[in-house]
Design a protein around this nucleic acid. Structure first.
Lengths: 214, 214
DNA sequence: GTTAAGCTGTGAATGGTTTCACAATGTGAT
DNA sequence: ATCACATTGTGAAACCATTCACAGCTTAAC
């Protein structure tokens, strides 16, 4: 049974929390501890870990180091994966600086923008190319992932170019769903939508469906 | 039956697409058209609209104007809602400029940062206050929503301050889940997690679970 | 050595969302 | 007026994710 999208997301979160726990000197964690920190139930944590195929001890819980290794093996590619950034506006630059400090196994190595004033400069240590160079640069560097931070009107065209260049995963901030062929994974981060959601539920004083172990 | 979080998200998306359709001169839409644009099935669209309690005609589909009005009535507060921005770093400023152009019924009217170099300046037309002023400013302006763009280490403290000031909805970009009391809605936008998700599924060439009507 | 306690691992139950399938309906063509 | 068609509205089914509940362990205490 392949892990669901949500499970993968939680594993990524667990990993971060486990790193903190390891840094704090913890050798073992219980599912309810991890759950409390992750905003999930102990049960959920155990299920997620089960899918990982790794065992804990009834009295000590899970070994932090083992879990970390297993999650890493599960989530990460064997080599560092390169990521392209398309759209070097405010948001693009913010994302760039965000990822340049926290570098797991993903590294933004090329940026693209249609504005000639931005191209051929180096932003946050990353070279910014013209859109016309997208395909050659992506192919040459073997890039398979992209972060898309262009205005809505340019999003579909940029996505098409990315797909044509062989990208198979896009993290899109465009406020419009992209049409991509099968086999290309798109994760939508729609800021406007999310804020409207928050406004709606905040008005009714509804809490987001998270919940910690007791 | 209260609408689910996902339904509200889709309604927000439908609204945006319907506005485009209206601008393009369309008076009516079919569920499958809207679905195709939104990356949802026709069936899903009809369900969502059903919850809205508004009817379409079997031969013309739904009237765009009616749908828009109904969604607006459903999603929007009767008055413009004010939003606070906490954390005026790169990401915060990007979000600020992002929302200052597209202003539905939500307006960022105050910013906060702990860095004294940033406070008492005006960024993108928004005054940046010190964190100490959070509660008085939030209360005075009647702000109930916040966008949180502070580093992970400062996130929980900032969230606590927001809750203490009476905020009931938070859009958080902090790479850590927040602990908030019941009745406060938190939407997490975890960039690092999302990118890892994309990397994972891109590697398996799995497509995100969207898909439009035939 | 025995017992008590608390945790893991997991089948089964639950709950929620999406899709199916089709009757009901309005429209245009003949 | 009637028919054929494409679409809506919706109960029921299918699907997926989460939680329950408990057997099986492992350890600590006595």
């Amino acid at each position: 049974m392949p892990p669901s999208e949500r499970t993968i997301g939680r594993l990524s979160l667990y990993r971060r929390l486990l790193k903190q726990a390891a840094a704090a000197g913890h050798e073992h964690v219980y599912s309810h501890e991890l759950g409390a920190r992750a905003g999930a139930t102990a049960c959920q944590v155990r299920r997620d870990i089960m899918g990982l195929g790794c065992a804990g001890s009834p009295s000590r819980g899970y070994k932090v180091k083992t879990l970390l290794d297993r999650i890493e093996f599960y989530l990460d590619a064997p080599v560092v994966e390169r990521v392209a950034l398309v759209g070097v506006g405010n948001l693009g630059r913010a994302i760039l600086s965000f990822f340049q400090r926290r570098r797991p196994k993903l590294e933004i190595t090329a940026a693209f923008d249609s504005d000639p004033w931005k191209t051929n400069r180096v932003v946050q240590g990353v070279r910014c190319h013209a859109m016309a160079e997208l395909e050659p640069v992506v192919r040459e560097q073997g890039i398979r992932l992209a972060v898309l931070t262009v205005p809505a009107a340019a999003a579909q065209e940029a996505a098409d170019a990315l797909v044509a260049a062989g990208i198979t995963g896009i993290l899109s901030f465009a406020p419009a769903p992209l049409r991509v062929p099968l086999g290309v994974f798109v994760e939508d981060m729609d800021l406007a939508m999310s804020l409207e959601k928050v406004a709606y539920f905040a008005r009714r004083h509804v809490r987001a469906p998270r919940r910690g172990g007791k």
